[in-house]
Design a protein around this nucleic acid. Structure first.
Length: 1133
RNA sequence: GGGGGGAUAGCUCAGGUGGUUAGAGCUCCGAGCUUAUAUCUCGGCGGUCCCUGGUUCGAGUCCAGGUCCCCCUACCA
């Protein structure tokens, strides 16, 4: 027997209960055990940043990850079940700094790196534990570390890195000093999630970098880079995503006094006042016109096209003195307002002697003054231009954005707080012409939102190689060998990108990206294994920690017992292989995408177990949200796999969009549209969340909110309802799955139909999941729930009644039981909690011992129903094989097509009734139909339709032309050209039906002859006919009402009214009643037996007046003879 | 700044190569069905197809100009 079921499920407690059971019964471990040895299906998890609690946006991707893994496991595949945490990088530092209240790098160094790095590690462990708990709550099945172990490691590390700790390893307890154990997280012996700060991860990146160096791709570049003064680090091109925001700035027009043309000035424009001190040159466009104007006592050179704009409101006062081409200005020398500053005269000579006008093609005619202020120390283009022109560079600020010495009263102050002083100085120097506020797009730090500046820095890059000016298929092998860029593209070609546009987007990124900046002047991250000799300049890149230990000639002791992080690794020195001098590591740390990109090697035992690596690499599947990842994880994964193995890292990349608020805007706490993961899990539940996500189109953003969740929950409640019905009826009828032996053959049409639909569902969902199209699977599942509930169950309901014929009832129960189980098994990867809870109850009779299950259950050899009968059903739906093989024999496509027609015909019939104003409860004598359904089931299908339409008989007719009149539709695309100007008149006449039919199918309309193939004769219902048509399907109702039919209709009306009263009275199906009625003599006389049976009445009385007594529930019902009144009461005992 | 996409019902979106009554889902209203249902069925309300002009017998669709939004990309002063 099944356990009783609530009408309204408490989804949240069902989920907690399932989590508890999975844990206690080791369900996941059993799934792993039973799939071991199966064909490999390799999923590679993109690491989640362990820096904060998980958000609902993570839940979307994690749902995909989980469902495809569950699906593959149900097909018998062996999986690795390893997920990963991204651990190193600026974002962790930023949060730790915030916790400490730090605002600059200096404070970190004062505190000491060892302490700071330890805090970074602790933070990662804190949130790895938290995210582990949250992911488990989401139902994500992975080889998780015990969160308590992670916290234990954290606490030990905080106390003393050398503390010995014992945690759960892959094969039992494992012990070691805390810091060293942390470095071994994710290894085969420790098991669990991978952590990108692990020894193996960092070590393999060294290998990668050494390979790049061997091939000559690694170099130190000096460039003007976007720089975050707060973080004290350069920002790489990869990190510029979403780094732009509108910003209001002060722009200024300022004069540069010409040396050889006394009294004349060049007017330059800039939006960055802080860079004016670094001015070295002024660039003009040689082909543009420049004008010298007299204005308020000054003589100013301005681009002709910008004169009015530059002078603002005073423009009309200007007097034109002279016009010259830009080319003529080139070489003019000038003095700038800050030439007296020591740092400036040191760089440019006394009085700024090096200032001159230069040519630059990029100068446009639509901005500023067409004279561009050039500061090679403060801008990327400026820097390039400066190099080309042989100009000196002035780099005024340090890594914190503070002015260096030699800049007068600016020295020691931050770049963004000197604007007013610059204006004051320019005004005093009689240079300032005008200032105005402008808003423009400006780059900001993606982590801390500080506006960026451009700074001259030395950074390390991996060269992407040349970009050729010809199509890729014209490149020679030598050209490709010389360019990592094209090698990666070749790898991109071999990957299946979902959605398809991902392919183009990745190629586009590769075409456009410049060299990969891999260094950061920070603390918490990969220690770059780069050793640059200060004596001879030789650069060496070490390939592993072992390599370093072999080469170390000083400081090795400091590193001992520590992971390869700062500050310990900074102590180690090697002897330069060129000149023998002592060399220390460059202090920079690595770009964090290096950490995530190496995981297809570091987590797949690339070094210690090549056989294992070959089995799992390349991955079959990766999935991440695509905004950003084309330049980040996808890119680094591709680049590193290309360099390390010349292979694609994965066969399929599946990208999905963003989670936004219900209003379509990005989630923001202050906008009130933000939902935390924990809140969502507690209120809507994980299954609803998962279903909502998977039912969304991956290429578009999900609008996530409570209303959408309610809509999703409603769908799942329908499923629950079917289940609750089955359990409730089984209790009443005493049905058990064990006694059932029904097979598909010989069952009723309805039974065979729903089983066939179940088989189709399993097969089509398998196809969808295999193609990573979970969206279609959800759509099909929702259709399946609908079919099961609103067609199968609604039409079959009465067969489950306790007093229904036993054999047929048995078949109905068995059919519903199997159809429901099949649907649940298809839905299980998406909604793992609810489906498992229902399964457990539906299979409760036949559950095997916890250990006695095997993979074969639910396959073709041992169908689930047989396993339940044999007491061999596994304890969880997630241990069953995918149901398509076992359900395949149920398939009957002809029947499915026929039933489709019947369902549609029923809808047409209801439409006819509605139009004729005859309610469905009123029986009619006859329906005539053109069905287009044939075969053995035709008669039974017609009976279903008759019952559904409440007609005595459904008569199939071959031709329904008598019910319709001809209407001519002119085929405009065919005749429009020929008709020309008379088109409108012909169309109007055709609409009015003024048509003359000619021989051979031709017609004459509005005086124009149209051939048979130029028109289409359509059938529209004849006036007064009760008929509806759709796609060749015709339903006509005979609406003649005889006294017998009316009386029967009244009887139905009466039953309905009594049922309503029963419901109002809160009676249950098995309760018996007594009925008294007034004004319903005729139907009672003719149909009392049927009424009594339908409403469960033991006694029916036709009375003159309502009975007295409070126990009676009263109501009324309109009958053909007038209003009747009713009263019922429950018969007790 | 460059490149791409879009603007259609209150909301989310469909509407090959132009064809005359512009559709679906959700919402709302009405009716129907129903002692499993919050489901479902039928019907209704709801549109200046962003604006202006053009081509055409005919334009949501094609062309030109404009306005606004989104995505990708970019340190132009």
């Amino acid at each position: 027997m099944f356990n009783p079921v609530d009408a309204r499920p408490d989804l949240i407690s069902i989920e907690h209960e399932a989590l508890r059971r999975w844990r206690e019964e080791g369900v996941f471990e059993r799934l792993r055990a039973q799939t071991t040895g199966g064909p490999a299906w390799s999923f590679l998890d993109g690491p989640i940043t362990a820096n904060n609690p998980m958000g609902v946006h993570h839940a979307w991707g994690r749902t995909y990850k989980d469902l495809f893994q569950r699906f593959r496991a149900s097909l018998g595949h062996e999986l690795r079940w390893q997920q990963g945490f991204d651990c190193q990088g600026l974002w962790v530092e930023v949060n730790v700094e915030r916790e400490l209240g730090y605002t600059s790098k200096r404070q970190i160094e004062e505190q000491g790196l060892a302490e700071f790095i330890s805090l970074c590690k602790q933070r990662v462990l804190t949130y790895a534990a938290r995210q582990t708990e949250q992911s488990i709550r989401l139902g994500m099945w992975m080889d998780w570390n015990d969160p308590a172990d992670l916290l234990k490691l954290r606490d030990a590390l905080a106390k003393d890195p050398a503390t010995s700790v014992t945690i759960n390893g892959a094969n039992g307890p494992i012990s070691g000093p805390a810091e060293q154990l942390i470095g071994r997280l994710g290894t085969p012996e420790v098991g669990g999630s991978y952590f990108t700060f692990s020894d193996e991860n960092n070590d393999l990146i060294w290998t990668f970098l050494a390979k790049c160096h061997e091939r000559g791709w690694l170099y130190k570049g000096s460039d003007s880079m976007p720089w975050c003064a707060r973080c004290g680090t350069g920002i790489s091109q990869h990190e510029m995503t979403e780094g732009y925001a509108d910003r209001e700035d002060q722009s200024l027009y300022f004069g540069l006094a010409l040396v050889d043309r006394p009294g004349e000035e060049l007017i330059a424009w800039t939006t960055t006042p802080w860079t004016v001190v670094a001015n070295v040159a002024a660039a003009v466009q040689p082909s543009l016109d420049y004008e010298l104007v007299e204005f308020d006592g000054r003589k100013l050179w301005i681009g002709a096209s910008r004169r009015a704009a530059a002078l603002g409101g005073g423009a009309p006062r200007a007097k034109l003195l002279e016009t010259r081409k830009g080319a003529e200005l080139i070489g003019w020398k000038y003095r700038a307002p800050f030439d007296a500053l020591p740092a400036v005269s040191e760089a440019l000579g006394p009085d700024g002697a090096a200032h001159r006008v230069i040519a630059w093609d990029e100068v446009g005619s639509q901005e500023g003054t067409c004279i561009v202020h050039i500061a090679p120390g403060c801008g990327s283009d400026d820097h390039k231009l400066g190099v080309a022109e042989g100009l000196p560079a002035i780099a005024p600020i340090d890594e914190s954005g503070v002015y260096l010495d030699g800049f007068g009263n600016l020295s020691g102050r931050e770049w963004h707080e000197v604007t007013e002083d610059v204006f004051t100085h320019l005004t005093a120097a009689k240079s300032l012409l005008r200032r105005e506020k402008i808003t423009h797009r400006y780059p900001h730090c993606w982590r801390c939102a500080t506006p960026l500046v451009f700074r001259l820095v030395d950074e390390w890059f991996i060269s992407m190689g040349p970009l050729y000016e010809k199509p890729r298929d014209h490149l020679t092998k030598a050209e490709i060998d010389a360019s990592l860029r094209y090698q990666i593209m070749a790898v991109v070609d071999r990957i299946t990108w979902l959605p398809e546009f991902g392919y183009e987007r990745e190629l586009d990124w590769l075409r456009n990206m410049s060299d990969w900046m891999i260094s950061k002047k920070r603390y918490w991250g990969l220690a770059l294994p780069i050793y640059e000799c200060t004596a001879c300049g030789k650069v060496e890149v070490l390939s592993s920690r072992k390599d370093l230990e072999g080469r170390a000639t000083a400081g090795a002791a400091a590193l001992e017992g520590h992971t390869a992080h700062r500050p310990y690794i900074d102590e180690v020195q090697i002897d330069c292989s060129g000149c023998g001098a002592k060399v220390a590591r460059v202090p920079d740390v690595g770009n964090p995408w290096l950490d995530a990109g190496i995981v297809s090697f570091s987590t797949m035992r690339y070094r210690e177990d090549p056989e294992y690596w070959k089995r799992w690499f390349p991955a079959d599947f990766i999935t991440e949200s695509f905004p950003g990842q084309f330049r980040n994880w996808f890119y680094s994964l591709l680049a590193m796999s290309t360099v390390m193995a010349s292979s694609e890292p994965t066969k399929t990349v599946f990208g999905y969009g963003l989670v936004v608020g219900a209003d379509g805007r990005a989630m923001h706490k202050s906008w009130g549209n933000s939902i935390e993961f924990d809140e969502a899990a507690d209120r809507m539940g994980a299954d609803v969340m998962r279903w909502l996500f998977v039912g969304s189109r991956p290429e578009e953003n999900v609008h996530f909110g409570w209303e959408a969740a309610d809509e999703t929950r409603r769908r799942l409640l329908v499923l629950w309802n079917v289940y609750a019905f089955l359990v409730g009826q089984a209790a009443s009828a005493g049905w058990k799955p064990k006694g059932s032996s029904a097979t598909a053959k010989g069952r009723s049409v309805m039974d065979r139909w729903i089983l066939s639909r179940s088989a189709e569902l399993a097969a089509s969902a398998e196809r969808s999941f295999t193609a990573y199209d979970a969206y279609s699977a959800v759509r099909r599942l929702e259709e399946g729930i609908d079919e099961l509930s609103t067609w199968y169950l609604r039409r079959t309901r009465e067969r489950f009644a306790p007093d229904a014929p036993a054999a047929d009832r048995d078949a109905a129960f068995d059919t519903l039981h199997q159809a429901l189980l099949t649907l649940l098994r298809v839905a299980a990867p998406i909604a793992p909690f609810l489906t498992d809870a229902i399964y457990r109850n539906l299979a409760s009779e036949g559950l095997a011992d916890a250990t006695g299950t095997s993979q074969a259950v639910g396959g073709a050899e041992l169908p689930l129903a047989a396993a339940i009968r044999a007491g061999e059903a596994p304890g969880s739906i997630h241990l069953l094989h995918w149901p398509s093989a076992e359900s395949a024999p149920w398939r009957d496509e002809v029947l499915e097509a026929s039933m489709d027609r019947i369902i549609r015909a029923a809808e047409l019939g209801r439409s006819v009734r509605s139009a004729a104003n005859i309610r469905t409860r009123q029986p009619l004598a006859r329906a005539r139909v053109v069905l287009g359904v044939s075969g053995n089931d035709e008669a039974e299908l017609r009976e279903i339709l008759a019952d559904e339409l409440n007609v005595k008989i459904v008569e199939a007719v071959g031709d329904a032309s008598g019910l319709f009149e001809r209407r001519v539709k002119v085929l405009l695309p065919k005749v429009g050209k020929r008709l020309g100007g008379s088109t409108q008149a012909v169309m109007q006449a055709a609409r009015d039906g003024v048509v003359e039919f000619l021989a051979g199918g031709a017609v004459r309309i509005a005086g124009v002859d149209l051939a048979a193939d130029e028109i289409e004769v359509q059938a529209v219902p004849r006036e007064g006919q009760h008929v509806a048509e759709d796609d060749g399907l015709v339903v006509e109702l005979d609406t003649t009402l005889t006294p017998e039919l009316i009386s029967e209709g009244d009887a139905r009306e009466l039953m309905r009214a009594v049922q309503d009263l029963r419901k109002l009275a809160g009676l249950r199906r098995e309760d018996r009643i007594e009925l008294q009625a007034t004004g319903a003599q005729a139907p009672l006389a003719a149909h009392s037996a049927a009424i009594a049976a339908a409403v469960g009445a033991e006694k029916i009385q036709d009375v003159d007046r309502d009975p007295a007594g409070e126990e009676w529930r009263r109501g009324s019902v309109p009958l053909s003879s007038g209003e009747a009144t009713l009263a019922i009461r429950r018969v007790t005992g």
